[in-house]
Write a protein that binds this DNA or RNA. Structure first.
Lengths: 107, 107
DNA sequence: GCAACAGTTCAATAATTCGGAACTATCAAA
DNA sequence: TTTGATAGTTCCGAATTATTGAACTGTTGC
């Protein structure tokens, strides 16, 4: 794996960004990354998501310009592209992350 | 058509809301509604989207709690559920609408 | 009545997504 | 180096979702 391809944020469409965030598993990953630090694919594990699906989620997040992934041995560590994303889509990530942790069911 | 079913905002998941906004055609509809007023299905017309597709887009927006639709003769007029949506997802709609009009291509 | 129009629903097709199995690459130990 | 376990990706068939023409419902106006 000779490094990953990361889009320039200018090439990311708003629809792609929203789509990437519109998935509970991907959003959970982004939330964790927003706390800081790097996250390996396996450490991300939303409940029982298979490896291949998880790998695909990371790919989508990468394509949306949300994360940057580097290879470290056999791990692929990802970090948020927070500042860049903020520049491209001002306020978007912060607003989404500010939403209640999900459990949408008020009476 | 005995009126439409509109979810309580408390029953709308964040993922559903983001998904609804993650489509250029639907987002264009929401942008127009955000300017105020009601919009009929046919008046919404994004370029060359067929009626059935458009109808489905409205259905998705309705299910996401973004719009309310009422019947007026043979027209189905929709309005934004702006305040309710804002209460459920603080800042979300405003932030999305504040994003550049789309044409993501800087060098 | 009839014809035109606004939208929805249905059904078939197209496009995405999911996930198991196979594969690649790294690390650790002997 | 060889063996074995681990981290991730890729491949590809299955399940899900999206698209859209055609048929249908209800409305308006003649």
């Amino acid at each position: 794996m000779p490094a990953f391809s990361h889009p320039r944020l200018g090439d990311v469409a708003l629809a792609a960004a929203l789509h990437a965030l519109a998935d509970p598993c991907r959003l959970a990953i982004v939330r964790r990354l927003a706390l800081g630090g790097e996250l390996s694919c396996s450490a991300a594990a939303c409940h029982d998501v298979p490896k291949s699906t998880l790998s695909n989620h990371f790919k989508i997040l990468r394509a949306a310009g949300l994360i940057r992934t580097r290879t470290a041995g056999r791990d692929h560590l990802s970090t948020l592209r927070g500042d860049e994303f903020e520049t491209r889509f001002p306020g978007l990530l912060a607003t989404v992350l500010a939403q209640p942790e999900e459990t949408a069911n008020a009476a």
